[in-house]
């Protein structure tokens, strides 16, 4: 049972690490600030979720588990706010987007 939990925890940690590196590659590889913000979202959301889940399975007591969940909740609450502030500032500053604007309101 303990071994099964360890293996599950390793799978979470390794996949989280993989997504973190993919996010890093995306931040380096994408052409402009808007596309890079999507790559940054990868590192903020799934990489954090998987790494925290992996650590959660290894936490020695409930207090550490609660703290881990609070770290995850905090990163998930703040990530969209800073992401939105960033692209909004870039857009207001006139950084060009490589596409046509569609003004139609759609559902």
């Amino acid at each position: 049972m303990a071994l099964a939990l360890d293996i599950l925890s390793w799978i979470f940690l390794l996949s989280g690490a993989t997504f973190a590196i993919i996010a890093g590659i995306g931040v380096l590889r994408f052409p402009d600030v808007y596309t890079r913000s999507h790559a940054a979202g990868l590192g903020d959301t799934l990489a954090t979720l998987l790494v925290i889940l992996g650590l959660l399975l290894q936490s020695p007591d409930w207090m550490v588990a609660v703290k881990l969940i609070m770290v995850l909740a905090f990163v998930w609450f703040t990530s969209p706010i800073s992401g939105h502030a960033l692209v909004k500032a870039a857009y207001a500053h006139g950084v060009k987007i490589d596409c046509e604007e569609e003004d139609a309101v759609s559902h």
């Binding site: 954090t48 960033l86 870039a90």
Partner: peptide, 22 residues
């Protein structure tokens, strides 16, 4: 642009949080 740098520093910071935890 300055926004690319802020974005990169933000990613750096989130990874630091994970680094400290791990």
């Amino acid at each position: 642009t300055v926004f690319d740098r802020v974005l990169a520093v933000n990613v750096f910071g989130t990874q630091t949080v994970l680094l400290i935890a791990v």
